Computed example of a mutant assay.
Amino acid sequence: MIRQLRENEALPLDLLLLADPSEKLVKEYVSRGKCFIMELDEAMIGTYVLIPTRPETVEIVNVAVSEDHHGKGYGKCLVLHAIETAKKQGYKTIEIGTGNSGVVQLALYQKCGFRMTSIDRDFFIRHYDEPIFENGIQVIDMVRLSLDL
Rank of each mutant, 00 (worst) to 15 (best):
E56F: 15
K34C: 02
K111S: 15
T98G: 02
A86K: 07
V65I: 14
Y109L: 05
D141T: 08
Q4R: 10
G75I: 15
H127P: 10
D20L: 11
L78I: 14
L149P: 03
M116V: 05
G71R: 07
R3C: 05
K34R: 11
K92Q: 11
G99F: 08
R126I: 11
K24N: 11
V26H: 08
L16M: 13
F114E: 12
I60S: 04
D20N: 06
I137P: 00
L149Q: 03
I125W: 01
F114M: 12
R3K: 08
G90R: 05
M38E: 07
D122I: 03
K34W: 14
A82C: 06
S66V: 02
H127T: 12
Y91M: 01
N8K: 12
V79S: 08
L13W: 01
G73Q: 09
K72C: 08
V65K: 01
S31M: 04
Q4F: 05
K24I: 11
I51Y: 09
V79K: 01
I119D: 09
M44F: 12
K24H: 12
I2P: 05
V65L: 06
G99C: 06
G136P: 09
E56W: 10
F36R: 05
M44P: 03
G71D: 12
G46M: 09
L15W: 06
E9L: 04
L80Q: 13
V58F: 04
R115Y: 15
L145F: 06
E9F: 03
A107D: 13
R121A: 09
